[in-house]
Write a protein that binds this DNA or RNA. Structure first.
Lengths: 123, 123
DNA sequence: ACTACAAATGCAACTGAATTGCAATAAGGG
DNA sequence: CCCTTATTGCAATTCAGTTGCATTTGTAGT
């Protein structure tokens, strides 16, 4: 019973995340591969990859859905950094200590840090 | 030179945030006031209130823009809690200690905690 | 290698939040 | 009360993302 067929489209998208540790927006990939595959395909592959636990997603400040590859040293709650200047979004490998709030039962969390990255600072 | 006219629409929306400390989605207000004002008006009033520093906004897990009133004891970086069950979103009055990441210059941050609120836990 | 069947894709139409342009309305200072 | 201009309504538009359905394509089993 195959759950994930290694199609051309699948491989193309997987390659991007293997070569790039940044959080990439769905719409960017749609654009990037507009001549290789349909946009619906991009969204569905990303969906599958997330359901399989290979990618994780979050919604950035502009409301765009971004995906990044899960790696072993990514803890459950790790923040994402979004550079205002170049738009590059990276997973920050730092644990955020969640405040202990007795009134709530917290199951997951999203942390988005917005600012300027090293590259843009030096330009 | 008046910058903020006290229109009926403005007052209606302001009242909501004065009576409710929760983070309310723009679309909820559009819906709520659909017979009192145009949806464009709702969006524009929210925009103005944010620019004037009276409200602040963030984008929730569903990609909806939510607004909440700024209060004095809201520090710059305070998290928002979103209840998966009832959908109510509240500003959590706890400081999140930002990790010190030397590679980035962090200007602002968004923290979204997702789980179940006290009311929903007891039901 | 062939077949059959489920998974994956393409296409076109659709959804739903948010935005824009422009004409009409109304707040409030003088 | 008048005049300026901030604010609003309306309709059309944008844009990311989704859905239904017919077609194609992997791949497991023979």
């Amino acid at each position: 019973m195959s759950v994930n067929r290694k199609t051309k489209s699948f491989k193309l998208i997987m390659d991007v995340f293997n070569e790039n540790k940044n959080a990439i927006s769905a719409i960017y990939l749609v654009d990037q591969f507009s001549n290789k595959m349909n946009k619906t395909t991009v969204y569905r592959i990303l969906d599958r990859l997330e359901n399989d636990g290979i990618l994780h997603s979050f919604i950035d400040k502009q409301g765009l859905k971004r995906y990044a590859k899960d790696s072993d040293d990514n803890s459950i709650t790790h923040p994402h950094f979004l550079c205002q200047d170049c738009g590059i979004s990276t997973c920050v490998k730092v644990n955020i200590t969640l405040p202990d709030i007795s009134e709530y039962n917290i199951k997951s969390s999203e942390h988005l840090l917005i600012g300027t990255c090293k590259d843009c600072l030096s330009n």
